[in-house]
Design a protein around this nucleic acid. Structure first.
Length: 350
DNA sequence: AACCTCTCCAACCGCACTAAT
DNA sequence: CATTAGTGCGGTTGGAGAGGT
């Protein structure tokens, strides 16, 4: 027998995520960390009324009527701390264009060079902006870029996996060369950041700082922004079993979900903490209020932790690559024949 | 004002690979 | 070793909003 069954496919919710679902998800991740998506998915049966959301929110049995896959996607593409949203900078645009030309439509690989952006974001940006832009600029050359720059001659008789790995390494190296050369004029903020980072992470001192002129969007901020938009769209929308979601912040004590005062806030009524919930005693409400407040406050710490981890985890390979790049460049010039590199050699690098 | 078309992007789908049992 | 769930990834879709007629 294999693993026990996962989510009950019946009753799994689809479609846009609501703020309360986001909160449940963030809360769960705060408690258990990312991953273990199965544990939070669909514990309740299809017959479970959504009113149990509040109980779920404030109990250890966090639960969503979402499949694990949907939860993971929501987290990685939207709620995860460190995601930068909004317009792409010219620098990022150039990076994407270069990396796409070298790596093809391998958005996850491209996104690894832009840790603040998700592969989905990059993919969307490419499909909606850059492809057209390049199409206009380059005309028929565009096709070449769309094909990822692979030449027919590379389809040799080597194993598919090995060939791809070698190509990847070759392309990544080229991409790094070009990306780094692009970035040389863009140092001021990066240098500052690398200085401070090097105090925390000595190993990180050799890591190329990634542009951070635009502020990070924390998951709390993401939710707050979502809530703002959501409340604008449906100010009278109510949550079953709780009271209305209100944007009348003056009339309700609110729990700020954001570190920025300009961002939105979740009212206690939204969280179901007002007196209308007769099933919950005043003490319980107070306790839950506190839990929610702590949850939000601690979220900032969690975000920092995750950002740091992300920096270390995602940038360490980057620094190794970079080191390798410079070593290789010094040893054999920039046009070494990486296609001849053996699998063993490439494996040793990582 | 009403309708149509286009653009954007969050979310879903399907496939491949990995890991657990 | 076989089976099955988990995860990662790229492609695609559908709905909301913007802009044009």
């Amino acid at each position: 027998m294999g693993r026990p069954p996962c989510c009950d496919k019946i009753g799994v919710k689809k479609g846009p995520w609501t703020p309360e679902e986001d909160i449940i998800l963030v809360s769960y991740i705060q408690e258990h960390g990312p991953g273990n998506w199965r544990a939070l998915c669909n514990k309740y049966s299809a017959a479970t009324p959504p009113t149990l959301f509040l109980n779920a929110l404030f109990s250890s049995n966090f639960c969503l009527l979402r499949c694990s896959k949907s939860c993971r996607l929501r987290w990685t593409n939207y709620l995860r701390p460190g995601i930068k949203r909004g317009n792409f900078t010219e620098h990022e645009e150039k990076m994407i264009i270069h990396l796409q030309a070298l790596l093809g439509n391998r958005w996850a690989a491209i996104a690894s060079y832009l840790p603040q952006r998700t592969d989905n974001d990059i993919k969307n940006y490419w499909n909606t902006h850059l492809r057209k832009k390049l199409g206009k600029i380059q005309g028929h050359d565009h096709e070449k870029i769309e094909n990822g720059g692979f030449s027919e001659s590379q389809s040799v008789s080597k194993g598919k996996w090995e060939r791809r790995l070698q190509t990847d390494i070759h392309m990544a190296k080229q991409a790094l060369c070009e990306a780094l050369s692009l970035d040389k004029s863009d140092k001021s903020t990066s240098e500052l950041e690398s200085e401070s980072k090097s105090k925390l992470f000595p190993m990180a001192s050799e890591i190329k700082p990634i542009q951070t002129s635009t502020t990070y969007a924390s998951s709390a901020e993401n939710i707050a922004r979502l809530l703002q938009n959501w409340m604008k769209k449906s100010p009278k929308l109510s949550v079953e079993g709780s009271s209305e979601i209100s944007d009348q912040s003056g009339s309700n004590p609110s729990i700020g979900l954001s570190s920025s005062p300009s961002e939105g806030a979740i009212s206690t009524t939204f969280l179901g903490l007002n007196s209308s919930n007769s099933d919950i005693s005043a003490e319980e409400q107070e306790a839950k209020f506190e839990v929610a407040a702590n949850l939000v406050a601690e979220n900032g710490m969690l975000q920092n932790e995750i950002i740091m981890r992300t920096n270390v985890e995602t940038q360490m390979p980057f620094s190794l690559l970079e080191k390798w790049l410079f070593d290789e460049a010094a040893a054999q010039g920039q046009d070494g024949d990486f296609m001849e590199m053996t699998l063993r050699e490439t494996a040793d690098l990582f």
